[in-house]
Design a protein around this nucleic acid. Structure first.
Length: 513
RNA sequence: GGCCCGUUCGUCUAGGGGUUAGGACACCAGAUUUUCAUUCUGGUAACACGGGUUCGAUUCCCGUACGGGCUACCA
């Protein structure tokens, strides 16, 4: 029965940085589209010029690119048959649809001022009523249902501000079929006459979203659960337009919740608990205060995009098996909306780190070396590719993030200037100092200096000095690296090379007192 | 307040009328490792509650509680 080509859209509004919940919505749309060989469209919903944030759109585009969730049509990704994809650029087309609804009796003009609306709401609230502008209350307001045709005309002619409201039927059950939750039924008496067309000449989300989805031939609307309450209105809109046959299917995704306590995940939680909430770092004006606010991203925190995506995919969706690690191809192959959970998912920063670690393990030495090399460059440290490659090999197993490679192995490039005080206090004495001196001389005399040879030499010197290797092993490590822990000791010595090892032992003998 | 949605280990989840309720993160213990990390092995830990339906409910139904979302000329 469903023969149309699958077309889905991600439709954020440019009011700030796209947060990870939005990325997940985009991802699920993308996976669904690709799974069905369909189209994934990016549409920018900028019908509210008050809340427009410069740069937000660019941020959204860059974020999607970094994540590899790439639309095949839409703002920033090339035009398709339904361009433009920015609602502000589609402005001229909405009015006719609003008029169509007025003419067919599904909508009406309303002239009430903000003050009048406020008064009405207060009255209803005091009386213990529920919804505000509805089949009952609209009879007492200033609109084309209560005013004479002539007065409506003259008000409009006089340039009075007005909006167009949906005329919600008085007594009907509105049924929405949600692919994740099943049928959701709402009584029209509980809905209110939402504004469809604003006095500034722009449509509201409700009108624009339905008109665009219809004209763009969207087959499935996959969006956050916060839209579920307005879904009945959208169904009514399709019906009023006579577009029921073309109405897309709906799927409302469970929300991403904060790790501790309850509630929707927000920027604040990230700041407070120390994890990124956004895909990439940046600074944009706050939609409310209009002041610049900077924020940290997964990219800058050292996460791999595929790890980030893998984690996000599993926050609200799971296949039937026990698989946790998925490539994008596997996600596309396995994804289905009927396996999306109904309940909100608390975000777990710890598991996100684990995902990154898994992906780091999959990276080759060369890939990690390239990242470390950049880091070294920025610090003005010169090193050969071959050397960095070997350094990666030594420290990679300790890393969760590629950007911590340097802190894990900085001593492979720069000699230590401080030494672990605890180890020195415990192990540095006359006897061990003597040993280090003997070791240094023994090393100096070696012609080749492999890890195995260095280790054999170390043991021999220990034996001839009547000292147990356990007593001086860690001390040797501290002399070389300054740190009590680190990579395999003799491997490290081999990489540093004989000369550097001897030199560091000399320096240590002088510096440690 | 009203409406809507939800509820399996601390967290993400699998499962489904009869199961030792499975996996993963985290945590704990042991093994390996000169250290740390890795790896391996093992362990603690869950069907919100109350009624039904049923021979039997964690699974189906209804309530309750709790949680969340929405309730703008915002999306």
């Amino acid at each position: 029965m469903e023969t149309r080509k699958v077309r889905v859209r991600f439709a954020p509004s440019p009011t700030g940085p796209l947060h990870m919940g939005g990325v997940r919505t985009a991802l699920y749309n993308y996976l669904f589209a690709k799974h069905h060989g369909g189209d994934f469209i990016l549409r920018i919903e900028d019908t509210d010029q008050e809340r427009f944030v410069p740069g937000a759109e660019e941020y959204i585009i860059e974020a999607l690119k970094w994540c590899g969730v790439v639309p095949n049509e839409g703002v920033g990704f090339g035009d398709g048959p339904d361009a433009p994809y920015r609602q502000s650029e589609r402005k001229p087309m909405y009015r006719q649809y609003a008029d169509q609804l007025v003419n067919s009796g599904h909508a009406y003009y309303a002239f009430d001022t903000t003050e009048e609306l406020g008064e009405m709401r207060k009255l209803i609230e005091d009386a213990g009523g529920t919804s505000s502008y509805n089949a009952i209350t609209r009879q007492n307001m200033k609109n084309s249902l209560t005013l004479s045709e002539d007065e409506v005309k003259s008000r409009i002619a006089a340039g009075e501000h007005y909006v167009i409201r949906m005329k919600i039927p008085r007594n009907e059950e509105i049924r929405v079929k949600d692919l994740i939750r099943g049928w959701v039924v709402v009584h029209s008496g509980q809905m209110d006459d939402k504004v469809l067309f604003k006095s500034d000449g722009m449509p509201t989300y409700h009108l624009a979203n339905v008109v665009d989805d219809y004209t763009m031939k969207i087959t499935h609307v996959i969006r956050g659960e916060e839209w579920l309450p307005s879904a009945p209105l959208h169904v009514l809109l399709y019906r009023s337009f006579g577009w029921e046959k073309e109405m897309p299917e709906f799927a409302h995704l469970p929300l991403l919740l904060r790790p501790d306590g309850n509630g929707k995940l927000s920027k604040r939680d990230g700041d407070r608990l120390g994890f990124p909430v956004f895909p990439i770092s940046g600074s944009l004006l706050d939609v409310k205060t209009k002041k610049p606010e900077s924020f940290t991203g997964y990219r800058e925190s050292g996460y791999f995009p595929d790890a980030f995506i893998n984690m996000l995919a599993l926050l609200g969706w799971h296949s039937s098996g026990n698989q946790e690690l998925y490539t994008m191809e596997e996600l596309i192959k396995d994804f289905s909306l009927d396996r999306v959970s109904k309940s909100g998912a608390k975000f777990d920063p710890e598991k996100t780190k684990w995902f990154n670690q898994q992906y780091l393990k999959k990276r080759s030495d060369a890939e990690l070396a390239a990242i470390w090399m950049k880091d070294l460059d920025s610090k003005g440290i010169k090193a050969s590719e071959d050397y960095v490659l070997k350094a990666v090999h030594l420290v990679r197993e300790k890393a969760v993030f590629a950007n911590e490679l340097h802190s894990l192995g900085h001593f492979l490039f720069t000699a230590p200037d401080t030494y672990d005080a605890e180890v020195i206090k415990k192990r540095w004495n006359e006897k061990s100092a003597l040993f280090m001196s003997a070791l240094k001389e023994a090393f100096r005399g070696m012609t080749t200096f492999t890890a195995a040879e260095a280790e054999a030499c170390f043991k021999q010197v220990a034996e001839s000095n009547g000292i147990k290797t356990g007593e001086v092993m860690q001390l040797f490590r501290v002399c070389l690296s300054g740190a009590a822990g680190g990579p395999a000791l003799f491997e490290m010595a081999e990489l540093l090379g004989k000369d550097e090892t001897v030199k560091r032992l000399e320096t240590a003998a002088v510096k440690i007192k």
